[in-house]
Amino acid sequence: MKPLEGAFLWGSIALYVATFVASMLSSLFRSPRARTAVAWCWPAALGLHLAAGLTRWTATGHAPVMYAYENSLSGSFFVGLIFFFVARRWAQALRALPVAVAAVLLILGNGLMSPARLSPLEPPFRSAWLVVHVLFAWVAFGSFLVASVIAGLYLRGERRARLEGSAAPAILDDICGRLITLGFAGDTVMIASGAIWAHGLWGRYWAWDPVETWSFITWLIYGVNIHLRFTLGWKGRKAALLALFSVITVVVTFFGIGVVSEVHTQLLR
């Protein structure tokens, strides 16, 4: 990692932490100062996060899409960016900011545990399809993760509404549906571009390796989400619970394959 990249990255982490603390204070004490701090810290954190990614891109000569560190750097950025746009458009989503920022920090932290070596792309990865593939993978990942955060917020609001006898926050349910659709479209493009790349590289576009199988499972599960929501009319509590459950497949696909292998290693020892 270059010093400039490190400065941007740690600066963004500090600002994310500040955003997290300020958003907690804002929701607990309804403090206007904390709200102002969120309004300044959050975009600044995203800006520095983007700057860290671009610095890395310049240093390595390729998009930050290789190995655990670079993937965490870009993946967490997409989660933050998608949530930023959602919360700017629909202020109701802002209450989930601490959860979204915590998710960003967790993903970044996971990446920082891996070596951040600067390495050129190996020949198999020198393909424009890789960038398309990974870009859409992060769009899908960010959308699904933010959808689950919004689903959690909906469930919390719905429970409170049930106790108080008021209306459930239906708009959060709709936002969740839109994000799932965006994620599903991104997931499909991710699978298709990965298929083209794999065929050019290995002469086959699908080999049922664990990552491919889990991508397909994720695609199926979110296909079921969309079908139940838009064709069979699922909404509210049921749809939100399904969105929360479905994100498990996303986490397994992106981060869990290694963990599953580790479990097997332990089991076989």
């Binding site: 839109r178 659709t181 965006l182 599903f184 479209a185 991104g186 499909t188 493009v189 699978i191 298709a192 298929a195 083209i196 065929h199 002469g203 086959r204 576009y205 969309i226 838009f230």
Partner: peptide, 25 residues
Amino acid sequence: VARDLGLWLFVVGSLLGSIGLAFRI
């Protein structure tokens, strides 16, 4: 050496499906 007549149908189908879904929503 590979030949797979299904690849391009799979790819075109995926892209058409994604664009169609986006329009639908």
